[in-house]
C-alpha cells in the first residue's frame, strides 16, 4: 500500500489539535508545578523526539558502516539534522520552564548541561561532514563520529541519576511528578502528536537529501561528459 502523505499529515494535525486542547483546556493544574505543567506537556515530547531521532541516526550510521549503502548515510544525516532542531526546541523550552520555576533561564543543572553537550556534539557532526570533501570518506568518518557522539544521549538521559539535579522526573514518589487522569492523557497525546509530526518531517528531510544526491550525481556526470 502506498504511503499517503496528505492523509498522514491530516491524522498528525488532528492528534496535535487534540493534544493542544487537552494540554491547555482539559488538564487541571498540577499540585506542585501548578499551571507550569502545561509547558511540560510541550517540552517533554520534544525531548523524547530528540532522543528518538538520535537513536534513528545511530542505528542508520551502524547499518551504513556494515553495508556501505548510501541510503543509511542519508537517513543518519537527516535524523541528526532533525536532532539539532528538536534539540534547540528542547533547550529553549526547558530554559523558559526553568525561568518560570526557578527564576533563572539557565543554571547549569546537570540535565541542562549534558543536553547542551549533546547538542554541541551533533553540531560537531555537521562541521565534520562539511570538512570532508570525498563523499564516501565523508559518510564513513561521520558514521564513526555519530557512534561516538551518541554517547552523549545516555549521558543526558541519565544525568539526573548520576548527579544531583533539580530537573523534575516522571517517576512516582521521590520528588517525582504525580500525573493522573486527564494529565496523563494530555501528555500521551502530545508525545504521540510529536512523534507523528517527527515521522512526517523525517520523510521530508530524507526526500530532500535523496534529491540533493541525485542532483550532485547529475552535475558530476555532466561535468564528466563536458570534460
Amino acid at each position: 500500500m502506498e504511503f499517503r502523505d496528505d492523509i498522514f499529515l491530516g491524522i498528525t494535525a488532528v492528534v496535535n489539535a487534540l493534544a493542544v486542547y487537552f494540554a491547555l483546556f482539559l488538564s487541571p493544574a498540577e499540585v506542585e508545578m501548578g499551571e507550569l505543567v502545561r509547558v511540560f506537556y510541550f517540552h517533554l515530547p520534544q525531548a523524547i523526539v530528540t532522543y528518538l531521532t538520535l537513536v534513528v541516526s545511530l542505528v542508520s550510521a551502524i547499518l551504513f558502516l556494515r553495508t556501505k549503502a548510501t541510503k543509511y548515510d542519508a537517513i543518519s544525516e537527516s535524523a541528526a539534522f532533525l536532532g539539532l532542531i528538536y534539540g534547540v526546541i528542547t533547550l529553549v523550552s526547558g530554559a523558559i520552564w526553568a525561568n518560570a520555576a526557578w527564576g533563572v533561564y539557565w543554571n547549569w543543572d546537570p540535565r541542562e548541561t549534558t543536553t547542551l553537550v549533546l547538542w554541541l556534539a551533533y553540531v560537531g557532526y555537521f562541521f565534520l561532514r562539511m570538512s570532508v570533501e570525498n563523499p564516501e570518506r565523508r559518510s564513513s568518518v561521520s558514521a564513526v563520529y555519530n557512534v561516538l557522539a551518541f554517547l552523549t544521549v545516555p549521558l543526558s538521559y541519565l544525568s539526573f541519576i548520576i548527579w544531583p539535579s533539580l530537573h523534575p522526573r516522571l517517576a512516582e514518589g521521590g520528588g517525582g511528578l504525580g500525573l493522573s487522569g486527564t494529565m496523563v492523557q494530555a501528555l500521551v497525546l502530545n508525545i504521540l502528536g510529536g512523534i507523528l509530526f517527527y515521522v512526517w518531517l523525517m520523510r521530508k528531510a530524507y526526500g530532500v537529501r535523496l534529491i540533493k544526491d541525485e542532483l550532485e550525481t547529475k552535475i558530476a556526470e555532466d561535468a564528466r561528459i563536458a570534460g
Binding site: 510541550f42 532542531i85 526546541i89 509530526f197 518531517l201 521530508k204 534529491i211
Partner: peptide
Amino acid sequence: MVLGLVWVTLAGLSLWLIRVRSNLESKLKG
C-alpha cells in the same frame, strides 16, 4: 509561549524543507 515556539519552529522547518525540495527538483529538471 512554549507552544508558539514549538509550532513556529516546526512549521517553519516544514515550509523550508518543502521549498528546498521544490528548488532542487526544478534544478534537476532544468
